[in-house]
Structures are given as structure tokens and as C-alpha cells.
Write a protein that binds this DNA or RNA. Sequence first.
DNA 1: TTGAAAGCGCTAACAG
DNA 2: CTGTTAGCGCTTTCAA
Lengths: 342, 342
Amino acid sequence: MARVGIREVAAYAGVSMGTVSHFLNHPDRVSAQKADRIQQAIDQLGFVRNNAARQLRLGHSTTIAYIAPDVSNPFFSTLAEGAEERAAEAGYSVFLANSKGERHREDSYLALFQEYGVRGLLVGSPLPIEDRLQAIRRHGTPSVLVGRRAGSELQPSVSIDDVLGGRLAAEHLIKTGRRRIAFVGGPISVQQVSDRLQGASVAVRESGTATLEVIDVGTRLIATGHEVGAAIAARPRTARPTAIFTANDLIAIGLAQTLSTSGIDIGADIAIVGYDNIEYAENAIVPLSSIRPPHEEFGRAAIDLLLETIDSDGPLAEPHRVFAPELVIRASSAKSRTRRRS
Amino acid sequence: MARVGIREVAAYAGVSMGTVSHFLNHPDRVSAQKADRIQQAIDQLGFVRNNAARQLRLGHSTTIAYIAPDVSNPFFSTLAEGAEERAAEAGYSVFLANSKGERHREDSYLALFQEYGVRGLLVGSPLPIEDRLQAIRRHGTPSVLVGRRAGSELQPSVSIDDVLGGRLAAEHLIKTGRRRIAFVGGPISVQQVSDRLQGASVAVRESGTATLEVIDVGTRLIATGHEVGAAIAARPRTARPTAIFTANDLIAIGLAQTLSTSGIDIGADIAIVGYDNIEYAENAIVPLSSIRPPHEEFGRAAIDLLLETIDSDGPLAEPHRVFAPELVIRASSAKSRTRRRS
DNA sequence: TTGAAAGCGCTAACAG
DNA sequence: CTGTTAGCGCTTTCAA
């Protein structure tokens, strides 16, 4: 099949190339009659517009790229959906890329999308990346850092208030009568982990009566929860915490499984609150209380911020959007300890 | 910052545009001295090559797009990783897009990527899509259907032998002494579900002694497993199956949870085998036996097939790659029933 | 409302 | 080994 461009369409429809282009970009400025003929030619010939040429001529594309560290994380996909929706409303498309949190992959996608001339970038990364984004911004490609508050006022970001999340979890546990609280998570060097711990810590301190034991772990997987659970179950009953707040739901799920198996009544003997509110939390043997980040708005906000940045030339008045998570109470922490004693 | 193209680089380095272009595309054909100067100019100026112009000139891009119905499905991300690896080896980049299995989103991405002139497409879809891919192929963009065997010899595809998967599961259950087997899954109209059932069915028939009860359900979620589990637990002991094979791991996990709670010993009283071997399967209270599709090779195979298609003009000799899944035995089905009786 | 023509930045063919 | 140059397909003045 011979390649068909607007030249072929024009010839077939008996008009000039300019008119076809007009039809494509300002349909209202073409007479109905010719519009018809052109549309027919397009259908007939199966014309597909060449984006490279269009973009070259226009000087910019109408695409936004989202580079994420972990595409399989539901956090990401929910976010991406919100972003795509909002982007579509504004006439943009979104391409996804998976960096796996690896620096060289981030770099190569960053470079690739720059070459592609994307209009802007959404970037999530566990790595230090602000300086790289700054360099790219200098070259005319704006970006929004996703998932972490940026340090610079020049670097827009959307993030979640993890300190608040930690506080909500701990306050809930304290309010329902738990005193000996444990935090399971790590490494503390990860910002999100330390924020969550900090929030919990503040709530415990403010309570005046509760205590916080920090169990620092190197990973945040279900298996991690299994290990910690076994260690806790092995303690004498009085040395066990009465409530556990974990850095994420996976640890919490592992913990609940092992503790249950050891005959501990989750929700009564030991309450558990996780973090992230993953789908599985709701469906665990004992449905898991969790901290829910507002993912839907998140993606939309990221695009909004990016669009603002594209439209303005100076720095934004409010470059950092911080969202409040909320507590979802389920069976793993629902029973109040005081009620149970009565 | 003024936009810098190869013209600026050339001026800065004191060479011609052509030499810069050569340096970029055939570095070996440029003297070391000028190469140095050019590299310096590029770094100094922060030159980023304009892909639109390059692509326009070249007539094709060096990008492959992967349109997937569910980006958050680990199946997808594992596959994508394999694909990206293989693509990178061959000098291609991979863009991802999330169709959510919705027709209009598929269509718009299909059109978008065509306009972008991607070199080829990987497409996963729960919908009938072969005719659309055919139309696109006619216009010069080849594709590989992922996850399902294509009907046409002109449409390359990579898929998994689900009939074999079902057979492996059932044979294993029969071999370990189970006779009353149940299949939980649905809707049967979904190819993958009916294939898995069919495989199990054949194995049961061949055994001569086992029986197969089909429990047709409308969804395949953990909650589905909860429901079916409750129904089974409510039966008199003798009317319960001694083994259950499920259409996916989620159902199996729900099933195991509810049956356990009802005092049924998973693996002894009732064996369970799931499908997909998701991460949770390994970490469930009772680790779940499952059928593992070979995801890693899958992504690589898809790209290989696509590259072959790009390089050849006629139809491929072997357009359909079908992979064999394997059985992973864990505690949920490990104990042999005969051994237990002795 | 329509047509003619310039040129976006780059690559490769060709000449030197 | 290096420079010159002709377009790739499209959009958009500008003129009619």
C-alpha cells in the first residue's frame, strides 16, 4: 500500500493540501461541501496523519509522559487513570514508562521523552531526582514530581501527608483503648517510612499514656510480616504489644496471618492497622484497617499542576500539593479494647 | 534558553551540520579530534536531538508500543519487563498504554500510536481486536497479539496453553489421591476459563475414577472465593469435594480463607490449586499451589516475534507462539491423601 | 473560503 | 574524513 499523506488526500478530493490541513485543524473554516469530499477521501484512502511532521512543524507535541518506578503497584495505576482522564480533557495523551526505580532506566526514559519533545513529565521515583528534573526543566520540559514533596519551589510536586497518616493510625489505636503500640517498618531512611513513624510517634507522645515500640525491618513484604509475627508470638503474652501499626499493608497482612495461626485474636488481643489500603487489605481473613491515600484526585492534581506550569512562565504560587490520607476502619482494629473488658 | 539544534552544535564546534549528524549516527566515521569537539559542544550546549525531525527524515521510528488492558496486573508488568529488555537489546524503546480493556481507549491509542509512527505494537485485549489489528497492519504497522492465540495466520500472537494448565492441575490432584474434584470459575464464555476447565475435564475423564463438579461463578475475585467457600462449608462433609481447582488464584485465596475459618484443613481435607501463581499465592496462610505461566520468556518472545515480522515482508512461518505453564506445588495440595490414610 | 509556498530540524547521498 | 544540500509531511502565513 502506497503511503498516503495529505497530498494524496488532496488530490483524491480535488482540493489543495492547504485545504486538507485546514479541514484537519480548523474544520469550521472549510465549506461543508469540500469537507465532505475530504472526509470521504480520508476514509477511502485510510489516511493517518504523520505526527512527526506535524510535531516538527508545530514545535511541540501534545503528549505527556509518566515515568513510574513500579507499574504493577495499584497506587500507580489508579493514579495513572486519574491523570489520563484529566489529560484527555485538556487534549493531551499520556504515555507510560516503567523505570523500576533504576537510575539508568530513569535517565534513559528522561532522555527519550525529551527527544520526543513531550510537553511535560510526571515522574515518580524512590531516588534523588530533583536535580535531573531541574536540568530538563531548563531545557524547556516541565515536570511534576509525584509521591514526594519536592524541596525546590521551582519543582512542582504532589504528595501525601504521611505524617498525618501515621498520626491517624496511632490516634485511632489509642482512642480504642490500646496502650502498648508497636510500629513495624523500615528502613527508616526511606522518607515515607520515617514520616509515618513520626506521625505515630507524635500521637503516642500526645496521648501521655501510650508507649511506642519501633521494630525496624529491612523489607516491607508479606514475608517480613511473617517473621515479625513469629517473633511477637514467641514473646510472653504480657510482653506483646496490644496494637501494631505497620509501614504498609503487606507487612500487616503477613503479621495477621502468623499471629492468627499462633492463636492470637486479631482485633481483640492485638489490633493491626496497615497503610496504603491495597485491595487485598479488604479481603484478608481478618479485614485489615488501613490508611487510604486519595489516589484518584492525585493523578488529576498532578496533571493540573503540570498544565499550570506549562501555561505559566514564572514559578507557580503553590507548587506543592499535599493530600491528606484517611483512616479506613475494619475488623482488625474495630473492637474497642475497653468495651471488651467490660 | 535558546533552542539548540545540530546547527548550533556545529557552529560551536566549528564543523558542519553534516559532521555533527555523522557523529550522532556513525561515530566511527568522524575523526577523534572533531568527535571530541562535537561532544564538548553537545555537553556545553545541552543539545537534545529532535526526534520528530529525525523520524520524519528517517521515515520510521525506533519505538514499540504496548497497549495493555490492565497495567496493574502483575502478569502485565512482568511481561512488559521482558519485552523492554529484549527491545532494548535490539535498539528499541517501549511505550506503555493502559486501555483498561475499553474499546474506545484501545481505539484511540491504536490511532495515536499509528500517528506516532511506532515501529510495531504489542496488544493485549479481552475484546475482539483482530480485525482492527489487521487494518492497522495493512497501513504498515505490524503487531503481536499478546495473551491469546490469534485466529489468522497473518496475525502473530503469543499465548499460554491454558488447556494444558488445567490438565496439569487436575492430574496433580488425581495423582495425590483426590477423587471428588470441583472446578470453580466463570464465566465460561471467557476463553481462558473454558480452556482451563477443558484441560481439567480431560484429565478427570482419563483418570476413569475421578469426578468433576463445575461451580460456575460470574466473577473471579477473592470475594467470589469467600462465597463459594461458605457454600461448600455448609454442605455435609460427605458432599464436599476433596479437591478444588480454581480459574485463578484470587478465587483460591478467598476459598482457602473461608474454608480454613470453617475448620476445614486445607491440603488435608480439601486440596486447592489456583492459577496464575500471583505473589500472594506463595504468601497465603496456607501457601497455595498454582499454575505458573512463564511470564519472563513471554515478553521477550512477543518482541522477537514482532521484530521478525518487521524484518520479513511475507507472513511468518510460525506466527503463533504457545507457551506451556507449569505446576507449582505448595502446602495447599502437597499432602497426598493416600499417605494420610495409612 | 481556498491555494501556493516556506520552512520546522534532521539525515544521507553526494561531491570534494 | 568533511561539507553541501535536498527533502521527509505537515501547518500556516499570505495573497487571491
